[in-house]
Design a protein around this nucleic acid. Structure first.
Lengths: 232, 232
DNA sequence: TAAGCTATTTTGTGATCACTAATCTAGTCA
DNA sequence: TGACTAGATTAGTGATCACAAAATAGCTTA
């Protein structure tokens, strides 16, 4: 019998996935102007690839609603109205709250360890006023909790909401000094540790609400949903 | 000044959208075997088009999780485990309930009229034991309610859940005689008419739960999530 | 100067070709 | 007879070409 050779995962990584990942990251990091139009050829030449991977990535991003497909097929960076923003926040509070409550019942010790670790780094980022790191760690913390809920479909819905609201996150970087409150993370961890779902949920909801309130003050919104997206 | 000519909407309908629409309908109607692999070339020759529109449609469907993308990029019809099914149902009850409660506050007279009309046809379909028509009308009824909630992001999440659970709906057709209860629709309409969100929500949740209970008896599930999907 | 028309460019869309890596199929050897 | 292997097939992925419609720029005209 041939010996069992265990290799690292094959790292299959097609171009269209790489393009998708990078575009997605760029959108969340708000490296595009809201309302800006993205053309296949421009992006493909920027990546140094043909149009094919970009077209595939666009199709995926549009289905995820990370970008908006105009009526004529043009892709543009989403622009949110206040109403749309409010609805997304309301849904995030609901679903993230539920996920946190679920997590409290089934989270493992290792996962709580990981949360503790991230919370420590969050504290450092807050003291250093490093908004970028703070946002990244905040996302990491939250999705560690959501993953601990063992509810993949729920996690998927939450991720979808994050994608849609992502472009607005950059407004955090504007002026956030002193706004960074890391106590809530400790509260979440403490509640999760004693399986107190109710309290953990409340803390998580408060975090979403607080962030949203800040964003609503500094973000710029669309007057009205000017050009409705195409297709169904 | 040239006279204002008003034309019907331009009906721009690219091939890849048509393919997407048809494939999506076929999946929901369960015209594919769960687990079945779909190849780009097979589908494209079946539609009589090149591979391009099919590739675009596949990318969209995969992002919508209406199909599963295997690790090597192959597209296959989703197979649900009992746990996955239960989670989707739980989320549907939650979100559809909330949407119904919202609708109760803002639904218009015309929309209630439309619901009444659909409920009438549902009654006929039930008496005729026409499962196909019943399912179609049931979907139409529900999404009329959801649309009335004026919460597009919420409606979008619900639609996503329907897409994932869609392939299982065909098991309804198996043996559903006498199971078709149209009273609930009247109850929903009555509650909506008097803006009684609580009652409307309860009736809608009951409908989801009832349908799910029936499906769990007759549907076939995957033993385990055999091959996990690729990408993120 | 501003509005309207035309020509050019750009863009999305679809088809076709090429390449590599799985996958399946025989065929062979122990 | 069963397992391994080499050849053939089929798969996804990427690039390039072609075309029509939309957007833009530039020119003309009132």
């Amino acid at each position: 019998m041939t010996e069992q050779l265990v290799f690292e995962k094959m790292e299959r990584d097609p171009l269209h996935e790489r393009v998708h990942r990078e575009l997605r990251a760029a959108i969340i990091a708000a490296r595009f102007e809201p309302g800006q139009k993205l053309t296949v050829r421009a992006i493909s030449s920027a990546f140094g690839v043909s149009t094919m991977p970009v077209r595939a990535a666009f199709a995926r991003l549009a289905a995820e609603k990370a970008v908006t497909a105009l009526a004529n097929g043009t892709i543009s960076i989403p622009l949110l109205t206040r109403e749309q923003f409010d609805e997304l926040i309301e849904l995030r509070m609901l679903l993230e709250g539920i996920a946190t409550e679920k997590a409290a019942r089934v989270i493992s010790g290792e996962e709580i360890e990981a949360l503790q670790q991230i919370a420590g780094e969050l504290h450092e980022a807050a003291q250093a006023n490093d908004a970028d790191a703070y946002l990244r760690l905040n996302q990491q913390f939250k999705f560690t909790v959501f993953k601990a809920a063992r509810a993949p479909a729920l996690e998927d819905l939450i991720e979808r909401l994050w994608l849609q609201i992502g472009p607005f996150m950059r407004h955090y970087a504007a002026d956030i000094r002193g706004q960074l409150d890391t106590d809530r993370y400790d509260a979440v961890i403490a509640a999760l540790r004693r399986a107190d779902g109710r309290t953990a949920r409340a803390a998580m909801e408060e975090d979403v609400a607080g962030g949203a309130a800040f964003l609503k003050r500094v973000a710029v919104f669309a007057e009205t949903s000017a050009e409705p997206p195409a297709g169904k």
